[in-house]
């Protein structure tokens, strides 16, 4: 009962309340309240995340499993960043309250936290993100092969867009007069047709489908049709 029925009841009740609250001006802002509570909850839940991170890595180190040195690096960098950020080490004091140390700002590279953000976290994430340039190329090479008509459409469109996105597209098609029947073949117009006609239509239908899927999934959860989320067998 406590473990199976009550969570389902809580789920249904909170879902129904939130749906109905949207239709009354008095309760309209409840959703904002819920979001702010969720953010706090996520903040508290970091205790679980941090605990898990420590547990996994400490276990690896203590049992000297292969790669335990890397776990040690993870733990050291985690601990160092946490200490530096919580103590606001090197923070620039707040001009209005220089006596309250924890009120200072630690965004500049003067503070340990700002330095770590600027020279460790930011370049690492940006570079990880930049790897996509390589992956995009290899994916295009491998996946864009004209195996069937659908594949031809996929690669053909990508091909056209790649071409018209650079000046080469304009050079190749600028000889077509702007008022002729074939003006739609000019790079500009091709791009416009692909995006404004085909892409808009495709995206619209995808969005309508996603909206229905979201609604149906929500209903399944709220009405208790899908109870996989909370019930243990």
């Amino acid at each position: 009962m406590l473990q199976r029925t009550i969570p389902l009841l809580i789920l249904s009740a909170s879902g129904l309340i939130l749906i109905l609250s949207y239709f009354s001006p008095i309760t309209e802002t409840w959703s904002e309240q819920v979001v702010s509570w969720f953010n706090i909850l996520a903040g508290v839940a970091f205790v679980l995340g941090a605990g898990n991170l420590l547990a996994v890595n400490l276990e690896k180190i203590s049992s000297k499993r292969p790669g335990w040195a890397y776990s040690a690096i993870t733990l050291v960098s985690f601990g160092a960043m946490l200490v530096v950020g919580l103590s606001k080490w090197g923070a620039v004091p707040d001009a209005k309250h220089p006596d309250v140390h924890l009120a200072g700002s630690q965004d500049s590279t003067q503070a340990g936290y700002g330095w770590a953000y600027e020279y460790v976290l930011s370049p690492l994430t940006a570079t990880m993100f930049a790897l996509l340039a390589f992956y995009v190329a290899s994916a295009a090479f491998r996946a864009f092969r004209a195996k069937n008509f659908e594949a031809i459409l996929l690669l053909g469109t990508a091909f056209i867009i790649l071409l018209v996105q650079i000046a080469a597209g304009a050079f190749l098609t600028n000889w077509i007069p702007e008022d002729s029947f074939f003006a739609f073949l000019r790079a500009e117009s091709l791009k416009a047709i692909v995006t404004e006609v085909f892409q808009t239509a495709g995206m619209r239908a995808i969005l309508i489908g996603i909206a229905l899927g979201t609604a149906a999934t929500s209903l399944r959860l709220i009405l208790g049709i899908d109870r996989s989320a909370l019930s243990k067998g």
Binding site: F141, A158, F159, L163, A168
Partner: peptide, 16 residues
């Protein structure tokens, strides 16, 4: 961008 786009176009052609 220009060179990379040309490279990608070339890769697609090569693949096909």
């Amino acid at each position: 961008q220009f060179v990379a786009h040309l490279l990608l176009i070339g890769l697609i052609v090569l693949g096909n």
